[in-house]
């Protein structure tokens, strides 16, 4: 059982690490989620006892370690929240740069730091973008509490 667990954890972690090295932000987040799940599986594997469900043990049955299950539930919630947050950030990146590529994002950063004037043929496009940004800011400010 330990071998199965370690193989699963290793492959999840490796796949996650591989995805995290990509420039595409969506893949990066997929990698994050996979690595988070590798950690969750590791917690499950670190249980001290195996047995039946940790609620309502019948007499004589071995009960599974309830502590790791509580821990893993908390860890799942946390990784879920982080993943949701990261996806929202990607969404914000996408709406303001219309791209989810880290390379293009750093290009945009360079452009921004040069503070150059928009070229004439791009004017309509940049206008659209600016307006969209303004509207999104407005939308975020208006989210009812």
């Amino acid at each position: 059982m330990t071998l199965v667990f370690s193989l699963a954890i290793a492959s999840l972690f490796a796949a996650g690490a591989y995805l995290m090295l990509k420039r595409d932000l969506i893949r990066l987040i997929a990698g994050m989620i996979m690595i988070g799940n590798a950690a969750n599986l590791f917690i499950m594997a670190s249980a001290l006892r195996r047995g039946t469900a940790a609620i309502l043990p019948h007499d004589g049955d071995d009960m599974a370690d309830p502590l790791t299950q509580a821990m893993v539930l908390t860890a799942i919630v946390i990784s879920f929240a982080t993943a949701a947050l990261a996806l929202v950030v990607v969404y914000r990146v996408y709406t303001s740069h219309l791209s989810v590529d880290l390379g293009e994002l750093s290009l945009a950063e360079e452009e921004q730091s040069e503070l150059d004037e928009p070229r004439s043929e791009d004017i309509v496009e940049t206008e659209i973008e600016e307006e969209v940004e303004a509207m999104i800011d407005e939308a975020l400010a208006e989210v009812p509490t």
Partner: peptide
């Protein structure tokens, strides 16, 4: 979380349409 993104997306779409028409 889904609602926040959905709202932003709706506005984004509406805006793009309007801006495209004007463009």
């Amino acid at each position: 979380a889904v609602m926040t993104v959905a709202r932003a997306e709706l506005r984004h779409k509406r805006l793009l349409q309007r801006a495209r028409k004007r463009g």
